[in-house]
Simulated assay, not measured.
Amino acid sequence: MDFQQTIQQLINGLGLGSIYALIALGYTMVYGVLRFINFAHSDVLMLGAFSALYIAPKVEKVLGPQSVTGAILVIVFSAAVCACLGMLIEFLAYRPLRNRPKLTVLITAIGVSLFIEFTCQNDAIFGSATRAFPKLLPEQQFHLGKIVLGSNDIIVPVVTALLLVGMWFIVQKTRIGTAMRAVSFNQQAASLMGVPVNRIISFTFGLGSALAAVAGILYSMKAPGIEPLMGVQPGLRAFIAAVVGGIGNLPGAVLGGLLIGVLETFAGGIPGLSNYRDAIAFGILILILLFKPAGLLGRATIEKV
């Protein structure tokens, strides 16, 4: 692999890793507040993509095809739909089990995920067939020698960076972010201090689901098509990315996503390793759990028995 091929693979890996990072941000936000993994998060990604599929034609009738304003509106509306769905899932499925053992909540999360997937495969809803995703923006390519840089390769990392900055600002510089950190540290003490715990947890689920919707749209812009099981593979890799970076740590989620995306892309371009690219993420996960269980940017904590 020569220098230009290396740069090309790096560009492709950063684009893929940025999508993993966006999904991982949703995982890590929910874990940071509630200390459990919302495995239905990957299916919210799928719902975000299908929301955009139905919203895009209506926006296109008003603003015309492939406009920047139209693409922004499609993303905003889809994120709002998924935010509402995320809060509904939390209210119906997770809130009644909040004081139950973590294993109970984990099994429920897997059940919610399977329920969404198989319900959406019904012909009365989305059906199991793969559908073409609409082009929200005109695609352009820039050639630097043998290096090809697509417009999507620029948009995805930029959007991820902006959303990471936005998440950091919300968590660190706003009153609701302070409340989120208080609930994460000690839910009972936060409740005694007047923090509306239920509202904060619902907001966290809504914010994480909105991120999943954005990730689903960006992923679909580069994917050949969308279908009800499309969130399984990227969601699993994003979960691994969150663990690798340090689950509960926002910059760690982004670092883990970029790392998994770049390594997976490089493995796919090396003869002899391309057949093992799916095993790369799981191999990294095993190594992290063996030698640095808290993740690259996570902190080890002591839990009372």
Rank of each mutant, 00 (worst) to 15 (best):
P224D: 09
G206C: 07
I226E: 06
L289F: 04
L259H: 06
G283Q: 05
A210P: 11
I176W: 13
N186R: 14
I280D: 01
F169K: 08
F169I: 07
S274Y: 01
G283K: 13
S274C: 01
I170E: 00
L236E: 00
A212R: 09
L211C: 14
A210W: 14
G256F: 08
I201G: 09
L290A: 14
G261N: 03
I270M: 12
I217N: 09
T174A: 03
L285I: 07
F291M: 05
I226H: 03
G225C: 07
G231I: 04
A179C: 11
Q233S: 10
G194S: 06
G216W: 08
V171D: 05
A253R: 01
P228G: 04
N198L: 06
S184L: 05
I280K: 03
A215C: 13
I280G: 03
I284E: 02
V254G: 08
I240F: 13
M180V: 11
M167W: 04
G256H: 10
G246H: 08
V197G: 10
S209H: 12
L263M: 15
A281K: 01
M180Y: 06
V197F: 05
I286S: 05
L211D: 08
A213G: 13
Q187V: 10
A213T: 10
G194L: 14
E264Y: 01
G235Y: 09
G231S: 07
A182K: 13
G177Y: 02
P228N: 08
G261E: 02
E264H: 00
S209C: 09
F239T: 03
R175I: 00
G268V: 03
G272S: 08
S184H: 05
I170W: 00
G252C: 02
I286M: 10
G231V: 03
P228A: 09
R199V: 08
S209I: 04
V262K: 00
G246A: 12
D278F: 03
Y276H: 12
I176S: 08
L259I: 07
A267P: 00
N186D: 15
G252W: 04
M221A: 13
A242Y: 11
A242R: 05
G216H: 08
G177K: 09
L273P: 05
D278M: 06
G177F: 03
M230K: 09
G225P: 06
A223P: 03
A238N: 05
F205L: 12
M221T: 12
I240Y: 07
E264N: 04
S184D: 08
